[in-house]
Structure formats: C-alpha cells, structure tokens
Amino acid sequence: MARLLVGLVALAVAFYVYALVDCILFARVRVRGLPKIAWVFIVLLFPVVGGVLWFLIGRGRKASKRQVQYRTVGPDDDPEFLGALRADPVSDAQLRELEQQFAEKDDPDTRTDNGRSDR
C-alpha cells in the first residue's frame, strides 16, 4: 500500500510540474477562459486540480488552417511599403542640366595633366 501511495504522489508531482511548465510556456494568445497569469496561479495553488483545469479549460487548441497567420516581411518584399515610395522628384530637365554640368567639369580639353583646370 505504501508503494502505491508513493507512486501516486510521484505521479501527482510529475503532473503538477508538467502542468506548471506547460502553462508558463504556452502562447498567451491561445490561452482560454482567464488571463495566463491567473492560470499560473491556479496551477500553483491547486496542484492536481489546477493542472486538470488548465488542460481542460485554459489550454487552447492549435491554430486552425482558417486562422490568419502573420509573418514578418522585409521592406523590399512588402508591396505596401514599396507603393509608398515615390520616384525621385528630379525632373528630366533638371537631370539633363546636371549631366551637362558634370560633363563640363569632366571635359578633358579644359584639364591639365595633374587634374586641375587651366583657370
């Protein structure tokens, strides 16, 4: 009889520890009935009964295929972010003017051997 009692106590302690760890590590968004912290206290204060209540009531089911799955998307893969980007506000006329200014500065006829202009 003593062996049976020791075995039942060991089983109860193992169930208590398993229920407590499961409750602490379980995703907060899947907890049902009460807030997660309340379930932790219930499992702590009522070892076997709290664990049974946790598994029957508090522990939510796995996410179904119909539920929306959220994932992080980088900005280069996010169409909303890419749509918010505007093209460079430089007009074609301004671009041609800048290209001409750079061409004038890089013109080899006005340069000397050491890279300075002849001014």
Rank of each mutant, 00 (worst) to 15 (best):
S117D: 14
G58A: 11
L25D: 09
D78R: 04
R61N: 05
Y18I: 04
R32K: 14
F41N: 04
F102G: 02
N114R: 14
V17C: 11
L82R: 11
D113I: 02
R111H: 08
M1I: 05
L56K: 07
D77G: 07
S91L: 01
F102T: 05
Y70T: 10
D109V: 07
L44I: 12
V31F: 03
V73Q: 03
K65I: 07
F15H: 03
R96K: 15
E99C: 01
V48P: 01
V17H: 06
A19Y: 03
P75Y: 11
A2C: 12
G74N: 07
L11P: 06
R61E: 12
T112I: 02
R32Q: 13
R116P: 03
G7V: 01
E97P: 00
D88Y: 11
R119G: 13
L82S: 05
D118C: 06
F46N: 12
D78K: 04
N114L: 12
T110Q: 12
D22I: 02
D107Y: 00
R30K: 10
R3A: 14
L11F: 13
D88S: 13
V13W: 09
F15C: 03
S117H: 11
D78I: 05
G83P: 00
V52G: 00
L98I: 09
L98H: 05
V21A: 09
T72N: 14
F26D: 05
R66P: 03
D22M: 01
V52K: 00
V6Q: 13
L5M: 15
R116L: 15
C23Y: 07
G7S: 08
N114D: 15
P35Y: 13
R66N: 14
P79W: 13
V68C: 05
F15M: 01
Q69M: 09
Q100R: 04
R61H: 06
Q69Y: 13
M1D: 06
R96E: 15
L85M: 14
D77R: 10
R32F: 01
V29N: 10
D109S: 13
R119M: 10
P47I: 01
P108E: 09
A10E: 12
A38I: 07
Q94M: 04
N114W: 08
R71W: 08
P89F: 09
I37C: 02
G50H: 07
K62W: 07
G51R: 05
A10T: 13
R61A: 08
V73E: 04
G50D: 05
G33A: 07
